[in-house]
């Protein structure tokens, strides 16, 4: 079950997955209907599923919603707006940010095996 972020718990999981080959799901979205409901709204989003990488260290910061950064040998992974987390049954770290109506707005997930 996704729960409101407890930074120490998330940090422990970020540390646990560091310096290992991992699979990343990273996503931002405001939904395909955003511009349909509000013509002045500029719809955008991106996702990458099963990017394989290894990060040297990861950190969660902020006072909520939170920010998460993973530093790799030659670059970065970054997500902003994180509100919820879950360490799921298979040991994956699922991080998500839900907007004020509860809709998913951002997700960053780390797994040692590929996502389905």
């Amino acid at each position: 079950m996704m729960e409101p972020v407890i930074t120490q718990d998330v940090q422990t999981e970020l540390d646990r997955h560091a310096k290992k080959p991992v699979y990343i799901h990273l996503e931002t979205t405001n939904g395909a209907y955003a511009s349909h409901f509000d013509e002045t709204f500029f719809s955008s989003g991106a996702y990458i599923r099963n990017a394989q990488l290894e990060y040297e260290h990861g950190k969660i910061t902020g006072n909520g919603p939170f920010r998460v950064g993973l530093k790799t040998a030659i670059g970065w992974v970054y997500a902003e707006g994180i509100t919820h987390f879950e360490k799921d049954g298979t040991g994956r770290l699922l991080l998500a940010g839900h907007d004020f109506s509860g809709k998913l707005a951002v997700a960053l997930q780390i797994s040692e095996t590929p996502f389905e």
């Binding site: 079950m1 996704m2 799901h25 996503e27 979205t29 939904g31 919820h84 879950e86 799921d88 994956r92 699922l94 998500a96 839900h98 109506s101 509860g102 809709k103 998913l104 707005a105 997700a107 997930q109 996502f115 389905e116």
Partner: peptide
Amino acid sequence: RNMGNPPFANRE
């Protein structure tokens, strides 16, 4: 994007 509020679903 709808996960329930509070969320009962996640991306996976």
